[in-house]
Nucleic acid binder design. Sequence first.
DNA 1: CCCGTGATTTAT
DNA 2: TAAATCACGGGG
Length: 209
Amino acid sequence: MGVDRLGASFYRRDAVAVARGLLGQRLVRRSQGEVVAGIIVETEAYLGTSDKAAHSFGGRRTARNESMYAAGGVTYVFLNYGIHYLLNIVVAGTNDPQAVLLRAVEPTHGLDTMQRRRPKARQMTDLCSGPGKLGAAFDIDRRVDRIDVTTSDALFIEPLRNRPLPANAIVESSRIGVDYAEEWATAPLRFFIRGNIHVSRGDARFRSR
DNA sequence: CCCGTGATTTAT
DNA sequence: TAAATCACGGGG
């Protein structure tokens, strides 16, 4: 597993470009003296102040989502439903609060560690096939909020390809769990690798391959 | 299908 | 100060 990583110029683009570009790249996490890693297979784009599903909608800026206003390349981690820590990568420029939610990865390293952190997982495809599962398997919590993934050795993304996957290898759908977001609830801002078995179930309507 | 979960946000 | 909300997962 290389020391190579995606740099600031990769992240300082709009959320759709980064969400697509992250598919097929490797998320690496070092913590507690252990390494876990996996290939990103599912993402969602959150477009910023205009996007009713985004935490930054309408320019909302609080202690929780402060990281979203930083320049692209830092994490935004929040606790959801009182239980799950979800990992986002902030993208675009300072004060342009867009982010990409990492929803699923295909585990490549540290599967034993992941299994220990996710005792309920019964098979490899249960380890990281959803944003809350990924958070647990990768030891994500609020302490990891606002980490700079372009410089941190604790969390970064390793390039496995220098071009985005071709459009026909990517499936688009509406985002999961944002039914409250009116016209933004159905925008095609979720992206996953066609046919990959580590993609989250999400809404069965969009489980195409 | 249904529901726990608890920090954060928003309403009183 | 109190109530509502919520980028989910696991078990029927």
